[in-house]
Amino acid sequence: MLRDALTWLAGTQWSVSLHESLWVWPLLESTHVLALAWFVGAAIALDLRLLGVTPRSIPARSYTQRLLPWTRAGFALMVVTGVLLFTATPVTYYESLFFRIKVLLLLVAGANVWYFHGRTQRGVAAWDTGVRPPRAARVAAVVSLVAWGGVVVAGRLVAYNWFACDLQTRATWVTRLSGCQLP
């Protein structure tokens, strides 16, 4: 089902033009990478505060609230450019093991944000000015750093076709995890 939809998408004029474009694809990709420095950079800054590393003198709540709009803007730019890039070669990404890992880590990062804002941050008044936030907040920061870092690494490795479906020498588990079509 999903494969059929993506195969259709890959055949559209839009997808082919984007895939073959000399400038648009590289410009989108560059914007995606620069938005990364912006968005993941802001996330790292937030996580360092939640870990109690730096800046210790600024209350956690005002720090996170002031940075959140910037983080959201960077994230929006990442998503828009990322979705557009996806439409250029959707089937290739669908069959990419690294892309699948990236999506999985995005879900982990998203669930972490959702849990942190829904639960942990509700009690922020109690630990706002403390140098070292409670354990739950520190765990959220570590999960965030690991998940976003993993998203960056997996995202970069999507460009390498070590596990591509058209390779002859691939293990069965790779075929299965990559969703390759069996001949």
């Binding site: 990478v33 990364l36 420095a37 912006w38 968005f39 993941v40 950079g41 802001a42 996330a43 790292i44 800054a45 360092l48 940075l67 910037w70 976003w148 870092g149 960056v152 690494v153 970069r156």
Partner: peptide, 13 residues
């Protein structure tokens, strides 16, 4: 790329 993110954290805020 991860180092680039660290640069973003240290620079942009």
């Amino acid at each position: 790329l991860l180092a680039l993110c660290l640069l973003g954290a240290g620079l942009l805020v």
